[in-house]
Design a protein around this nucleic acid. Sequence first.
DNA 1: TGTACATCAGTGAACGCGCGTTCACTGATGTAC
DNA 2: TGTACATCAGTGAACGCGCGTTCACTGATGTAC
Lengths: 208, 208
Amino acid sequence: MRESHAAEARPYHHGDLRRALVDAARRLLEADGPSALSLRAVAREAGVSPAAPYHHFKDKGELLDAVAQEGWQKLDEAMSAAKARAEGHQKLTALGLAYVCFARDNPALYRVMYDAARDKEALPDQMENGEDSAYCKVRTTMVELGADPVAEVDLELATVAAWCAAHGLAEMAGFKQFTHLKDTLGGEEAFLRAVLNHMGLFPSAHRA
Amino acid sequence: MRESHAAEARPYHHGDLRRALVDAARRLLEADGPSALSLRAVAREAGVSPAAPYHHFKDKGELLDAVAQEGWQKLDEAMSAAKARAEGHQKLTALGLAYVCFARDNPALYRVMYDAARDKEALPDQMENGEDSAYCKVRTTMVELGADPVAEVDLELATVAAWCAAHGLAEMAGFKQFTHLKDTLGGEEAFLRAVLNHMGLFPSAHRA
DNA sequence: TGTACATCAGTGAACGCGCGTTCACTGATGTAC
DNA sequence: TGTACATCAGTGAACGCGCGTTCACTGATGTAC
């Protein structure tokens, strides 16, 4: 067992090393945190020489981007599923909860996603336009729940506000300071729901 | 001019190297970002040998902690000032705005602050208890504006929610996706205010 | 006031390390004839 | 169906780098007598 568990008796040509590298990166990430994500470590984890990744990614940054992009996709999926599971006016809170739980369950990946975004000073393109993106789904859900789609600015503001709220909560939820409040409210999920409900997630027209 | 601009003709004993190191760290931070913050770079920037910092900090982590702690202090001060400047029911929004502006103006420091917090899984102790901490000030302000201090859980929830909202907005505000919305609303500050106002910053009793 | 000496706060060289990337290479695969 | 050859996707050794930390040292300061 000298080899990484991902290695085994591999043929010389890997088959889909790109895929394997992204998977290896995610494994490392959740095991040892974002600082463990070096190109060499990823290659090692995938059972391959340190030069091999260069046949699939221009440089380290491109590998990180691929990992981040897959993260955004997984977030989209998690939120889709949560929305489908929830009923009517609960859908919005369900989306928020799914967001926060994704961040809690994939903390290192979540970090890499936003690190990549900050580098580019932009969230991924697909979020702005893609019908299936988590971000657009929030807006769509607001309209479904009765928000006026003609009040564009208001709708956009509400979407941004909801996104900020979820992100802020995601980053705070792990701090020890809030364990007392969690206990008082009856557990973490209750706490998350309570905070989300405290924030105005709906467009203001809907609230008035 | 071979020396760092902080060096000049220094006596052998520095006087207050600890202070100088923290200052150097902050200078590096805002100039080149968090990844530039190595112990060696800080020593270099302070015009001192790489071993010198070890007379003032146990290791690199302790230096970073000192930088972060000073960051929290500066945040406290900025929010105090903003609260003093604002009138009545505007105080809460003013606090939020000051928070977000602090993050915008000291992005790398802000990052280091939360990195340190995440390491410990806790915000700094003083935030929980210190009367002058920014966090406590938010709660106090809510009471001053009419929130019922007896509804402890509700008050605490409202404080957490406001803190999350501000943090979320602080991290989102820089993304290119929102430049259109900023323009529509008449500038960045208008955008920040609009988003903050969209979130329920008051305790629910106050809203009902 | 002067001197011996302990302590403090620096120096600078060295350590081992893991990193990103490049290079010449070679084994495996696919295609043309 | 077999063979020559181009291309693809790996290897492994090497590069230079900056890092955190340690070490024996030394210059400056303060204190006791």
